[in-house]
Design a binder for these strands. Structure first.
Length: 287
DNA sequence: CTTCTTGTTACTGA
DNA sequence: ATCAGTAACAAGAA
């Protein structure tokens, strides 16, 4: 599932590949994926180009050079954005790179063709992804509904203390709520709480000052490290070159239920449904 | 065949 | 206002 680190990896990759390239053609194969007018999307993108790519939480925002519009793409659970230059020729026998995906495939819903013969593929096995063209005002409204960006300068301990104050929910639900902090999903929420040694079921109001400090520190640490290793590939996530993320091997609790805790070596990783999500934690070293 | 999974939104009821 | 719980969405895995 693409969360902040995965989306940030894709953004950084694509910035190097597609900025300012002329979009020659857009092949919209599944118009249901587009939540604004599909016809307009094709018309607005044709002969246009991307002048900037931004990220807000898990949302990718492509600023268009012309027409003062933005293309927004949310990958949800199984969306992929893969860039390929020219046709891939799978040479028989010498496949030392098993990351390469043969595209387009049956899950390819949009293909962007650039004038240098390169292509960007939007694939989504479960079709939950959301693609839209929005104007400046609508983009601002979307941005306003997201909470603070946890890796930006403004996310100081003081600011975090103010955001978390008086919340009545459990800390897992708090971390997942995009209107407080943008970009944390199920994998990183569990990893952050493990790093901070806090049980996901803890009510926010019960957290001591030291514990809040630990969560604040863990958010930055876990997200930064995950970006460094280009995200977590569990099922479908790939970067803009179609390659898997390498953070899987650093996961401490996610999908490790019933196994021994890697930190205290006494506890067992448990799995419970908290905040409506599969939630993993160590029953010994998280308090 | 059924059940579960998952991010997000929408809805309901407390 | 605030929150918990649940359905819906789609497709595949078990």
């Amino acid at each position: 599932m693409p969360e902040l680190p995965e989306v940030e990896t894709i953004r950084n990759d694509l910035r190097e590949k597609i900025l300012n390239k002329k979009i020659e053609k857009v092949d919209l194969r599944l118009k249901e994926i587009v939540k604004s007018s599909p016809k307009d999307l094709v018309l607005i993108l044709k002969e246009n180009s991307f002048k900037d790519i931004r990220r807000r939480g898990k949302l990718l925002v492509f600023a268009l050079a012309k027409k003062n519009k933005y293309l927004t793409i949310h990958l949800r659970m199984t969306g992929q954005l893969v860039y390929q230059k020219g046709k891939k020729t799978i040479a028989g026998g010498h496949s030392d790179n098993n990351d390469i995906i043969d595209l387009p495939n049956k899950h390819t819903h949009i293909i962007f063709y650039f004038s240098d013969k390169s292509q960007l593929f939007f694939n989504d096995l479960r079709r939950f992804g959301v693609v839209k063209i929005v104007g400046k005002k609508e983009l601002e409204d979307i941005f306003d509904n997201f909470g603070i960006e946890p890796l930006e300068k403004g996310f100081s301990l003081k600011v975090f203390q103010n955001i978390i104050r008086n919340k009545k929910r459990n800390v897992k639900a708090f971390l997942l709520d995009q209107k407080y902090i943008a970009g944390i999903g199920n994998i990183y929420a569990d990893e952050i709480l493990f790093e901070a040694k806090i049980l996901p079921s803890r009510k926010v109001v019960s957290l001591k000052a030291e514990e809040i400090k630990a969560i604040h520190k863990a958010i930055k640490k876990v997200l930064k490290k995950a970006i460094k290793y280009r995200g977590t590939t569990f099922n479908d996530y790939v970067d803009a070159s179609g390659k898997q993320g390498k953070f899987l091997r650093f996961l401490k609790v996610y999908e490790r239920e019933k196994r021994k805790c890697l930190r205290c070596e006494k506890g067992t990783i448990q799995k419970l449904k908290i905040a409506g999500r599969g939630t993993r934690y160590c029953d010994q070293c998280q308090k």
